[in-house]
Computed example of a mutant assay.
Amino acid sequence: MPNFELMPIGAFARRSGLTPSALRFYADSGLLPPAQVDPVSGYRYYSADQVARATVLRQLREMAMPLAAVETVLDAGADDASRLLDEYVSKVVGDAEAARQKAAAIKFALGDVPGLPIAVLKGPVLAHAIEQVLTATAHEPGMPVLAGLRIEANPETVTLTATDRYRLSTRTLVPAEPPGQTWAGTVDGDELRIAVAEIRRSAEVRLEAVPHGIWLRVAGREDRHCRLLSEEFPDHRLMLASLGEVTARVTVSKELLLRALEEHPGARMALQVADHGVNVVSANDEHPGVPVPAATTGQALQIQFELTTLYPAVSTAIGPDVMLDLRGSDRPVTIRSADRGDLTTVAMPVKPDHSA
Rank of each mutant, 00 (worst) to 15 (best):
G220C: 05
L216K: 10
L228H: 07
S253F: 00
S242I: 02
R227D: 12
R221A: 10
H212A: 14
W215N: 12
H212R: 12
F233L: 07
R221G: 07
A241W: 03
F233N: 08
S242Q: 14
E245L: 07
G220H: 08
L229Q: 03
R224A: 07
V250Y: 06
M239L: 13
L243H: 01
R227N: 08
I214Y: 12
D223M: 04
K254E: 00
P234R: 04
H212D: 12
T251H: 11
L216Y: 11
M239T: 04
L243M: 01
V246S: 09
S242W: 02
G213T: 10
E231G: 11
V250P: 03
D223Y: 05
G220Y: 08
T251F: 05
G244Q: 00
S253C: 01
V246A: 05
G220T: 04
L256H: 09
L258F: 02
G244V: 02
L238F: 09
L240V: 05
H236Y: 13
A219M: 15
S253Y: 00
R224M: 09
M239H: 11
R224Y: 08
A241Y: 01
R224F: 14
H212W: 14
L243W: 03
V252W: 02
L257H: 00
S230E: 08
D223V: 00
E255C: 00
L238R: 12
S242A: 14
S230N: 15
F233V: 03
D235E: 11
V252D: 00
E245A: 08
A241P: 06
V250A: 04
L238N: 13
G213A: 10
L238D: 10
G213S: 15
R237A: 15
S253M: 01
S230Q: 12
D235Y: 05
S242G: 13
A260W: 01
V246T: 14
H225R: 10
E245D: 10
S253G: 07
G213L: 12
R221C: 04
E222T: 07
E245Q: 08
M239Q: 06
S253T: 02
L228G: 04
R249H: 09
A260K: 02
E245K: 07
A260I: 01
H212T: 13
E255A: 07
S253V: 00
A219G: 10
D223C: 00
H225F: 12
P234I: 02
E231L: 11
R221S: 15
K254Q: 03
T247H: 06
E232F: 07
R221F: 07
T247P: 06
R224Q: 11
R224G: 05
W215Q: 12
V218F: 08
G213N: 14
G213R: 15
R224S: 09
P234C: 06
I214S: 13
W215D: 10
L243F: 00
R259Q: 09
E232K: 12
L216H: 08
L238V: 14
E231C: 08
E231K: 15
G213D: 13
H236K: 08
G244E: 05
F233T: 09
M239F: 15
V246H: 07
F233W: 12
E231W: 09
R237M: 14
L216C: 13
T251V: 07
F233A: 09
H212E: 09
P234T: 02
L228M: 06
A241L: 03
L240Y: 03
L216F: 08
L240P: 00
A248R: 04
A248Q: 04
R227I: 04
F233C: 04
G244N: 02
K254G: 00
T247R: 11
G244L: 03
